[in-house]
Amino acid sequence: MVKVALIDGPDSLTGSEVASRSLRKIVWTRLRRDKLAMVCLFILIALYLIAIFAPVICGLLGVDPYSFDKESISDSGGGPVGTWGGISTEHPLGVEWGTGRDIFAQLLYGLRISLLIATTATILTVFFGTVLGIISGYAGGKTDAVIGRTMDLILAFPFLLIILAMSGVLTQRLTALGVPDGNPSRITYLIIVLSIFGWPYLARIVRGQVLSVREREFVEASIAMGASRYRILFKEILPNLWAPILVYATLTLPTYVGTEAALSFLGVGVLPPDTSFGGMLGNSVSYFSVVPSYLFIPGVVLVVLVVTFNLVGDAVRDALDPRAGRV
C-alpha cells in the first residue's frame, strides 16, 4: 500500500565513494560476477521483449485478448468449460469468466501496459526528482525552502485516495488538452500522478548528495575558476549523483508496477476491452473460490516481475556500494 513510502529510506543508498569516471566499468564488472543478478537481468529483458512483441507472440499462438469465445464458456452461469479455468490447447492459460477471452493474451497485453506505465513514470520521477533535488540543494535559501515545503505537502497527502478521487476529472482534463480519449488519457493520468507523488523521495536524496558534494574541493575549485553554473551543476555535481539515482530508479520501477496494479484493482485502470494485472486480479475476486487460476496466473507473473526488478536493484546497489553488500 504505502510502498512508495518504503523506498524513502535506508541511508545505505547514499554515500558512494566510487569515482565517477570508472563507475560504469566497475559496476558492470561487479554485476557480471553476480550470477543471480545476471539471471534476473536476463528475465527482465525477456519480459520487456515479450511485452513489446506481445501482438506477434499472440499471433503465433493464434490467441488475442479481445475475441470472445462463446464455445469455451458454459451457458449456465457463464463459467469456463473444463478444468483450471478452461485451459486447453486453444487457450494455454484458460479463458475469462463470462466472455471466453483468452487469459494468456490478456496477460501479455496487461504486461505491456504495466511496463509502459511503470517505466515511463520512473523516467519522469527520476527526471523531476533529480532536477528539483539539484536545484533545491544547490540554490539553497528561498528556492530550497519552497521546494522543501512543496515536498512536505505532497508527502503528507494520502496519495492513493487523491489518485482515486481525482482520476475522473483529471482524465477529462487531459482529453481536453488533446490527449486521445480513453486509454491514452487514463494511462497518461496514471503516469503523471505516480510521478507527482514519487519525485519528492528522490529529490530528498539528491538534495542531500548535492549538499555534501557542493562542499568538496573540486567543486569549490571550479567555482573559484569561474566556471558557469551550468557547468558546475551538470559536469561537476551530476556525475556524483548517478549511483543513488540508479539505485533509486531500479527500486522504484517495481514499486510502480505494484502501485499501478493496486490502482487498477481499485478501478482506476485502463478501460475495457483492455485490461491489466490489477484489473485481472480485481476480476478474480468474484470467482477465485471456483477458479483459483484467475488469481494465481496474473499474481505470480506480477510477483516474478517485481522480485526480479528488486533483485537487480539490490545487485546494482551492492555493486555501487560494496559496504552495504550482501557480502
Binding site: K70, I73, G77, G78
Partner: peptide, 15 residues
C-alpha cells in the same frame, strides 16, 4: 449488438 454474449456474461441461463 451481441445480446447472446451479453447474456452469457451476466450468467447465461441464470441471468
Amino acid at each position: 449488438l451481441d445480446r447472446d454474449a451479453l447474456r452469457k456474461n451476466a450468467g447465461g441461463d441464470f441471468a
